[in-house]
Nucleic acid binder design. Structure first.
Lengths: 122, 122
DNA sequence: ATATGTGCAAACTCTTTGCATGGAG
DNA sequence: CTCCATGCAAAGAGTTTGCACATAT
């Protein structure tokens, strides 16, 4: 990741303006409003590169592939709408979850996902 | 789901003997030890049918497709090993997690996943 | 001027489906 | 004897990769 291209700027702008985790096809859709020629392979390459750089972080939600979100944000979790499949942030976290693991298991992270219907889809 | 075939019995036996969520390829691998001719398409069709029947439940963990586990079991969560990608059960659950959702969101379920290394992989 | 980044298309992986055959009832 | 279930192979969906061209530096 060395050059500052139109495509990469567009992808960054998309993440900065949308406050939730995005799947590659969502990034493509929003990004093409800025750079219409943007291709899906470029999106995949850039989200991966931005994640390697620590600018994005991977969000491992159920239901297919990885999503990505800005990395700097404070610890939080996600709500996944069963109807529109969009992911939303939840800003509180139950404490001490990582202590639930069995003996001998080494925990280095956790994800809490609530499922249901978002305010739009109800 | 009407007939009791060798293949279906083998798949049931696999789930009854392995106490953790299984992905289709794991079911195939274990099932072929019982019925060597077992095919992957048959596994996919049967886990879906068994889930529709309520005998299996879907486990929506990150990292690819659905996994399945016996449905009857009490509420629990999962530990996903970053090294071997196996899923293990966690038998405790933090209370009141579903109250963390934003206003206006309707929650109908939750999943808590701990990430790390299992006892084998440490 | 140079070499990284892009866009396209092909390759891959995972899952589903169509179809002829096998086997449970 | 029927029809549902199986196995194979082909078709889809999502993601990655190879290559020639474009472009940031």
């Amino acid at each position: 990741m060395q050059r500052d291209t139109r495509q990469r700027r567009a992808i960054r702008r998309v993440f900065m303006s949308v406050g939730r985790p995005l799947a590659p096809d969502e990034v493509l859709e929003h990004g093409q409003r800025i750079v219409p020629s943007l291709g899906l392979a470029t999106v995949y390459r850039n989200v991966k590169a931005l994640a390697d750089d620590g600018w994005l972080s991977q969000v491992e939600l159920p239901g297919g592939g990885l999503r990505y979100e800005l990395a700097e944000r404070p610890h939080h979790h996600h709500f996944l709408c069963r109807s529109c499949d969009l992911a939303f942030d939840i800003h509180r976290c139950p404490d001490e979850v990582e202590e639930l693991a069995p003996e001998g298991f080494e925990v280095d992270g956790h994800e809490l996902i609530l499922f249901g219907r978002c305010a739009e889809c109800r």
